[in-house]
């Protein structure tokens, strides 16, 4: 768990690797009731929508970034806001990593700003994000 007083700008969150399987994409899209065929129908994704493979859900990548925030902040802090952008698609089985860095700290509000991203195997940040965490 992170103690507010020990947080410094530049601190790195523990990164986490993610690699979807077709079972995970099935379960995620069932859980959020998303029947878009680009997430489970390879022929459709390639031939009708021009993707290179079965597409990972953008909001699933967003969720992964919130997970490294939740793991970092512990139970006594709360996620106040989260913003992410889908810049580039990623595909079933791609080796991805959720990464994050402390970029701001305000002692008056006890709010910490984090810069986050989903990074692909080429080192491209395909989904940049920002989170604000409030410590009690």
């Amino acid at each position: 768990m992170t103690e507010y007083t020990n947080i410094e700008i530049g601190d790195q969150l523990t990164p986490r690797s993610f690699e979807t399987t077709i079972v995970q994409l099935f379960m995620y899209n069932a859980a959020v009731w998303n029947p878009h065929r680009i997430h489970f129908d390879l022929d459709y994704a390639k031939n009708e929508e021009g993707y290179a493979g079965i597409v990972n859900d953008g909001p699933l990548q967003g969720d992964w970034m919130t997970q490294i925030v939740v793991d970092w902040m512990g139970e006594s802090a709360r996620l106040k806001s989260f913003k992410y952008s889908n810049r580039q698609a990623s595909y079933l089985g791609d080796r991805l990593q959720a990464v994050g860095t402390v970029v701001g700290k305000d002692d008056e509000t006890r709010q910490v700003t984090l810069s986050l991203a989903i990074r692909n195997a080429n080192g491209d940040d395909i989904a940049p994000a920002e989170a604000i965490v409030e410590f009690s």
């Binding site: 967003g62 709360r78 806001s81 989260f82 913003k83 992410y84 952008s85 889908n86």
Partner: peptide, 10 residues
């Protein structure tokens, strides 16, 4: 249709 940006205040 593609996904864009999502900004949430909790």
């Amino acid at each position: 249709i593609m996904a864009g940006t999502c900004e949430t205040t909790f």
